[in-house]
Amino acid sequence: MTSLNTAPDLTGRNLSKRRAFANRTATLLIGLCVLIAALPLLLVAWEVVTRGGSALSLAFFTEEIPRNYRTEGPGMGPAILGTLAITGMAALIAIPIGVLGAVYLNEYGKNKPLARFIRTMADVMTGVPSIVMGLFIYVAYVVVIGEKVGFGGSLALACLMLPIVIRSAEEMLRLVPDELRQASAGLGARKWRTTMSVVLPSASSGITSGALLAVARAAGETAPIIVTVGLTYIYKPDLFYGENTTLAAQIYRNATQPFAASQERAWGAALTLIAIVFLFTIVSRVIAARFAIDKR
C-alpha cells in the first residue's frame, strides 16, 4: 500500500550500475567521435595558416612561378589567375545548363519515368571520380583539338559541377509555392513566361547559393586539371591557347619535392586556395541566410 502512495522515482538514480555505465560510456564515445573529426580540421587549419602565412606577400600573388623547384622566393600569380579563370568559365557552362535542367525536372518532368531516371543518374554522376571526368575531357576534347588548354579544365570542372547544380537548384524550385505559378497562369502568362519571370526569380537566392557551393568545390579540384590543363609558369589569360595551371595543381606538383623553397610555395598556394574556397562558401551561406524564401 505504501509503495503506491510514494511518487515514482524518475531521477534515474536507481539505475542498475551496468545500465548507467553503458549509457555513460556510449555518451562519452559519441562525444569522442566529434573530437576525432575536429582534430584533423584544427591540424590542417593550423599548419596551413602558420606555414602558408609566412610564404604570403604581395609578390606571391603577382609574380610568375619560378621554373626551378630550388629557386627561393615568391610567385603564384599565374596559378591564381588560372584558378579563377578556369573555374569561372566552368561556372558559366555548368550553371545555366544545370538550372535549365532543374527547371525540366521540377516544372515539366515531375514524376515521369524520364525525369526520375535523370534524377537518379544526376545523383550517380555526383559520385563519378573527378579523375575520370578529366580522362573523359582529355579523350573527347584535348585529343580532338590537339593540345592541353585551360578550357579543357573548365569543361571537366563543368561536368563535375553540373549534377550538384541540378540537384540543389531543383530543391530550391520545389520550395517555390504553387500559388505563385497559379497566379501567374491566371494572369494569362504561358508556362515559359511563368517560369522565367516568376518561378526562377523567387528561387534565385537559393539557386545562387547552391551554385556557389558547387563553384567552391570545383575550385579545389586537382585531378582533372593535371590531366587536361598541363603546366605553365607564366600568365596565360587565354583559356583557348596554350597550357595553363591552377593553385591546386601547383600544390600537388610542389608538395612531393624535397626542396624547402618549393614546399614553401606549396603552403602559400594552399592558404590562398583555402581562402578562395572559404570565400565562396561564406558568400553562399550569407546569400542563403539573407534572402531565403519561406520554407513551407
Partner: peptide, 28 residues
C-alpha cells in the same frame, strides 16, 4: 511556339546528364 521552344530547351538541358554519362563510357 515560345512555349514549345522553352520546353525543348529545358528538356535538352536535363538530357545533358545522360549524354555526359553515356559519352564518358563510350569515349574512354
Amino acid at each position: 511556339r515560345a512555349d514549345w521552344g522553352f520546353r525543348a530547351l529545358v528538356t535538352a538541358a536535363g538530357l545533358t546528364v545522360l549524354a555526359v554519362l553515356g559519352l564518358i563510357l563510350v569515349t574512354t
